[in-house]
């Protein structure tokens, strides 16, 4: 099943919203770079898909708290997640 990778903040881009629109059962969402800002504010309460992963280094670099229900990954975990899903779709516009 598809791994969706979002690297843009939902406050500045439609990437996450577009991703949600094509999210199917069995897919997974990975938030990286500014995409981790989806873990904040009203957006965080409205993530209706699962499972959701994020890169721990990117979360820490932005001083964010990890909400419950989100799994954080180091780089090794990131690679492993990519081996478990196919295809891998990146959303960045």
């Amino acid at each position: 099943m598809t791994l969706h990778i979002v690297n843009k903040s939902p406050y500045s881009s439609r990437a996450l919203a577009d991703c949600f629109a094509s999210f199917a059962d069995g897919d997974a969402l990975l938030l990286i770079e500014d995409g981790v800002y989806a873990l904040t504010g009203f957006i965080a309460d409205n993530i209706a898909v699962a499972p959701v992963y994020c890169l721990e280094a990117d979360v820490r670099a932005r001083g964010l708290q990890m909400p419950k229900g989100i799994q954080s990954l180091d780089d090794t975990g990131w690679v492993k997640l990519c081996t478990e899903h196919n295809p891998i779709v990146s959303w960045f516009q």
Binding site: I5, N7, C82, T83, N86, P87, I88, V89, S90, W91, F92, Q93
Partner: peptide
């Protein structure tokens, strides 16, 4: 390749 991973702008 088994996987293609895209790193957007």
């Amino acid at each position: 390749s088994d996987r293609l991973v895209t790193f957007g702008n």
